[in-house]
Design a protein around this nucleic acid. Structure first.
Lengths: 138, 138
DNA sequence: CTATTACTTTAGAATCATTATAAACTATTA
DNA sequence: TAATAGTTTATAATGATTCTAAAGTAATAG
């Protein structure tokens, strides 16, 4: 199956109509080797570079990223930076977050072990475990 | 030493002039048994309840919380909620974060063990280790 | 195929959290 | 007590995100 069809299937299997906009964004985000960290504004700048003919509105980018997140294709990263950061690496892993530059870096799952997880409070269940190592210039 | 003087000293030792506003906020935040989690808007609502005579402006509350954070009297908590959460418990510990209600709960330091911490990227040093367990209704 | 329906995109307005501004005020210091 | 340095304040400005409702497009029924 070619990449175009893979994207279409990915969208369909998440009950998302494969529109031109969603394909373009999905193609950009998911057809790559390395994981990609971004904010919506950053993604918007890249997707809508001046020389691009078919621009995608910022609202659509927000909608699409939100849909991809809900479908489990993107992981939202915890920060204290008052904007949303996303990661194309959805497998369980952790992050360095540079509080001076706002840069993120993945930490391999096996490089950190979180042991003795406590029980969730009554009536709740744990949905995700995220370790953030805040770093700065040494 | 009475509590009023304690607060004054805490402020002075952080090179913050003990103004009426800072005392009031510090008194509210730090003279308590249990830790307190809040956003600035929540704190503003509490500090400026209708029946309060001396109101404190929202800008001052932001300034003060920022000063207290920089002085190390408050810990900022990582979430994916696009607003800043603070914790009066500044000792090393972790959190449950309910993504449906935005409620936070402390996790005792010893209830989670993070082992095998990786080295920080070259030229950087680890400033903080935070584990957030995202929870939701089960 | 075509018409209908349901979903999606869009520009722009609205909202929410936060930061900036600059004038009035207050604690500290000389 | 006067000068100064730091602080507070209302308000404006900013930045990120969500809302709105009209126009467009994909899916589906006939």
């Amino acid at each position: 199956m070619n990449q175009k069809n893979k994207i279409t299937n990915k969208l369909r299997s998440s009950k998302l109509r494969p529109t031109k906009q969603r394909r373009k964004i999905a193609d950009f985000l998911f057809n790559r080797e390395k994981t990609f960290h971004f904010t919506v504004e950053e993604l918007n700048k890249i997707i809508n570079k001046k020389d691009n003919l078919q621009k995608i509105s910022l609202a659509t980018i927000y909608n699409t990223i939100d849909a991809f997140k809900k479908a489990g294709h993107l992981k939202e990263i915890l920060t204290n930076n008052n904007k949303s950061y996303y990661d194309t690496n959805i497998s369980s892993h952790h992050h360095f977050f540079d509080i001076e530059t706002n840069e993120l870096e993945d930490i391999n799952y096996n490089d950190i072990k979180v042991v003795n997880l406590p029980h969730a409070p009554k009536g709740k269940k744990i949905q995700d475990v995220e370790v953030t190592l805040t770093v700065k210039k040494s």
